[in-house]
Amino acid sequence: MDHHLVLPPLRHEAALLPPPPGSRLIRLHGESMGTGWSLSVYAPPGLSEADLRALTGRELAAILALFSPWQAESEISQLNRDPREDLQVSPAFAALLGPMLDLARASNGASDPTLGTLVDLWGFGPAGRRSGLPPAEKIAAARAVSGWQRVSFDPLSGRLQRPCGMRFDFSGSAKGLAADQISAALSRAGAGHHLIEIGGECYARGLKPDLQPWWLAVETPEPALPGWRVALYGMGLASSGAAQNCFFHAGRRYAHSIDPATGWPCQAGPVSVTVLAQTCCEADALATALMVLPLAARTAFIARRGLSALIFEADGRVSPSPLWAAMTKDDDAQP
């Protein structure tokens, strides 16, 4: 089958060198954050499989302790239960909340961490799936306590003001952040040549012994479509799709991406979006935004921010952004 190779510019964050002599390839996998994770790493001498698994576990646990609504004592769960409108969040929580509120503002709420009440109402939160559609009055009430416009936040002090009943949700960025954090921890441990994947969100650093980057295949919604393979080096890759987390009612599919303009799951828009960005967290959040934005707004947002994105439209079209297209070449040979 024909396929396309995506060759981003190299980021010279380190010398383009292979793994150190004596490094061995170790592959690990596990489950966390409601999904699976996998790690491929060229480990230097002295760094064991047990060391790598423990390191990965510590970083995942730290993210869960901050942002998992499924853990009753996580910071986000305590924040969502707190009836006060004026609160203080930890520096680690603020480090993600600040940029995500900025992105919510820039995307007109298409990727918004304040929509947790709506996410829960539609059955995509810890309470589990719905057996039917929520009543219109409950949707209106959830919308009334949701939205980045209703938040006042000082990222330096961590002071947060929000309406009572607002619930935060970082399902569109926390897995990407975890991938970034694990990558940084691996590099500090001397294992700077690796690929980490969490539920389809990926970050790669360093090269393989043959000086090849880490090649990742983009999942396509239809097997007959040409494939896409991305050379990942010091960047993050994330995808969001209508089929990844959804439920059906009366023969209609309701996806997890919530449209803040209506309070309903998006009923139009792409089948899936893949974004390449400097961090996996950024790619994760941007993919969510592009799933929600209407076509004209999405096109303008991509152009304004210079995004590298591949979009599979509902009508079967494949729409690479200009930057993605500029990095693409056709090649019938496997790299």
Results as ranks from 00 to 15, higher is better:
Ile196Cys: 05
Gly172Phe: 02
Thr299Lys: 13
Met291Arg: 03
Tyr233Gln: 15
Trp324Cys: 15
Ala255Tyr: 01
Thr114Pro: 09
Ala191Asp: 08
Asp315Ser: 03
Ala185Pro: 05
Arg53Met: 11
Met1Ile: 07
His12Lys: 10
Asn80Gln: 15
Ser38His: 11
Arg317Trp: 12
Asp332Lys: 12
Gly109Cys: 08
Ala325Trp: 15
Ala191Ser: 02
Gly116Tyr: 00
Arg129Glu: 14
Gly125His: 03
Arg253Pro: 04
Gly234Thr: 11
Glu73Thr: 14
Ala224Pro: 10
Pro69Arg: 05
Ala104Gly: 09
Met166Trp: 01
Thr56Ser: 12
Pro9Tyr: 14
Asp331Cys: 14
Thr299Ser: 15
Val292Gly: 02
Ala127Glu: 13
Met327Glu: 15
Leu39Phe: 06
Asp284Cys: 01
Ser171Arg: 01
Asn80Leu: 04
Ile26Cys: 14
Asp259Leu: 04
Leu52Met: 05
Ala277Met: 06
Pro265Leu: 05
Asn108Glu: 14
Val275Tyr: 08
Phe93Trp: 12
Leu293Met: 09
Thr56Glu: 10
Ala141Tyr: 03
Phe168Cys: 01
Ala268Ile: 07
Thr56Gln: 09
Arg188Gln: 14
Leu177Ala: 06
Gly125Asn: 08
Ser68His: 03
Leu66Phe: 13
Ala43Asn: 08
Ala268Phe: 14
Ala61Arg: 12
Ala72Asn: 14
Asp102Glu: 08
Leu293Phe: 10
Glu13Met: 08
Trp215Gln: 09
Val218Gln: 04
Ser107Ala: 06
Ser308Pro: 05
Leu207Asn: 04
Arg53Gln: 15
Gly241Tyr: 02
Gly116Val: 02
Ser272Asn: 07
Trp122Glu: 06
Ala242Arg: 07
Ala179Val: 11
Gln161Met: 10
His194Ile: 07
Pro265Ser: 03
Ala178Cys: 14
Gln161Ser: 13
Ala43Gln: 08
Ala289Glu: 03
Ala178Glu: 05
Ala250His: 14
Arg253Ile: 08
Ser146Tyr: 04
Asn80Glu: 11
Pro226Glu: 09
His193Leu: 11
Pro134Lys: 10
Ser131Cys: 12
Leu310Asp: 07
Gly176Trp: 07
Gln181Thr: 13
Ala50Val: 01
Leu295Asp: 12
Val318Asp: 12
Tyr233His: 15
Leu290Lys: 04
Ala261Arg: 00
Gln161Asp: 05
Ala54Cys: 09
Pro83Asn: 13
Leu160His: 02
Gly234Leu: 04
Pro260Val: 00
Ala104His: 02
Trp324Ser: 09
Cys202Arg: 13
Ser146Pro: 04
Gly123Ala: 09
Val230Ala: 07
Glu59Gly: 01
Phe301Thr: 00
Gln267Asn: 09
Gly199His: 01
Gly123Cys: 04
Ser48Phe: 15
Tyr254Ile: 00
Leu156Val: 13
Pro45His: 06
Phe93Cys: 03
Cys164Ser: 15
Ser131Lys: 12
Ala238Gln: 11
Leu115Val: 01
Lys138Arg: 14
Thr220Lys: 15
Ala136Gly: 07
Pro21Lys: 02
Gly158Asp: 04
Ser187Ile: 12
Ala325Pro: 04
Phe312Pro: 06
Leu115His: 02
Pro335Thr: 03
Ile311Trp: 03
Trp70Pro: 05
Leu310Pro: 08
Trp324Leu: 11
Leu10Gln: 10
Ala179Gly: 03
Thr262Trp: 06
Trp215Phe: 15
